[in-house]
Design a binder for these strands. Structure first.
Lengths: 215, 215
DNA sequence: GTCATCTATTGACACGGTGTCAATAGTCTT
DNA sequence: AAGACTATTGACACCGTGTCAATAGATGAC
């Protein structure tokens, strides 16, 4: 336990007895308050390391109230994840018109650029501490979704509405390749940027020309 | 609770009373037997969905015996993971002499096979407590290294001693592709096995034919 | 201002999971 | 066949979850 301790609620109330011991809020407020406490705890520790009792204590509330508002612990957790994972509306770089190969080159270069500039902390977690820092992780997930849309644009698959979810899945796989490629280049320094670039570009091409058509 | 039910042991013994109700085995045998039951269950379901009681029931044994032999449930689980993710030398030996394409096909098929059999135990790795558990992490890194050696063999790069560490790096990147591909196939179920197979095979080919030579 | 009503909130309960440990009962030795 | 050794058991204590009738804070009526 970090900040909140024995005494209970986040907003610590002095021993003033003007406040009733039982603080009654509107359902919306209470739900929100519990949610925020849960969010904080789930961001600090893993799911199984956070007990409903912990959340209730942090919110200064009886454990049963959690079930009343969220059904069960898992549902609360999923709601936290959901909110954490919502895609931020970040403007994605506009890709130039050009041949397929050119657009792939530009997309890969863009990936590596953004890795280089803003990716130091981003890469750090992938290797060892992926569950440790969910704040970073949620940014990652949002970035991943953005990346997928970028890839769909870059590879000219935007019109293909048929098996969109499967195409997304393939690109989601590919983003992992980008991530681990960046790790070898920037963190372990086993590969140079051109080497990683070659690897990423050729795999992206082959995914679009062979794997996607196979859907 | 799938196959084995109320009555207990895997090797069902008829109501013949010649067998003592308590079957005493050598520690090695018993340990092995419990281990195999645990392995089966952990491959079918996730860690938290398999209770020690389930394992004990499957083995036809008192629950306490699990703790006696393995300490606690988590240690037993780690041992299963360790064995599951250890690449058997058999697999390497099975790589046929043949064209490059054939060997790639076999290697990819082998990867997917071992993913499929490892099944649910693989689930816990990506989502859950990876950074939090150094023991688990160590096991996984070792397994990754084994996979890399397998890939070097399969792709006929064993002789190439020149930039060995860079080749390793590229295959390390590739193993992440395998991992996330498996996740889409087995966990998210967004892709079918043939689809993932196509993706993995074509990317592996292109890595060897384009990315590795570029070193 | 007081009362009645509504409902947010509580706390005790049942249940299931885990790890421990003294007691029990196969098996092996002599 | 008796005794020693130890594999195996089963009950116990503890912890976490979800449920639900009871409780008490707030709100509106008068």
């Amino acid at each position: 336990m970090a900040a909140v301790d024995a005494d209970g609620p986040n907003t610590v109330i002095p021993d003033d007895r003007t406040e009733p011991r039982r603080q009654r809020l509107s359902p919306d407020e209470r739900r929100q308050q519990i949610f925020e406490c849960a969010q904080k705890l789930f961001n600090e520790r893993a799911y199984e390391d956070v007990s409903a009792t912990d959340i209730a204590a942090a919110a200064g509330v009886a454990r049963g109230l959690i079930n009343h508002y969220f059904g069960n612990k898992r549902e609360l957790y999923l709601e936290v994840i959901k909110v954490n994972s919502t895609v931020s509306e970040v403007a994605v770089a506009k890709l130039p018109d050009g041949s397929f190969e050119e657009r792939v080159e530009v997309a890969v270069a863009w990936f590596l650029d953004s890795l280089e500039t803003s990716g130091a902390s981003w890469l750090a977690l992938g290797s060892g501490s992926i569950g440790r820092d969910p704040d970073l992780e949620k940014i990652l997930i949002a970035a991943e979704n953005d990346s997928i849309e970028l890839l769909i644009d870059a590879t000219g698959l935007a019109e293909r509405t048929k098996n969109r979810e499967q195409i997304r899945a393939m690109f989601r796989i590919y983003t992992q390749l980008v991530r681990s490629g960046g790790r070898e280049w920037l963190l372990r320094k086993t590969l140079t940027r051109p080497q990683v670039h070659t690897l990423l570009a050729s795999t992206l091409r082959v995914i679009v020309t062979e794997a996607v058509p196979a859907i």
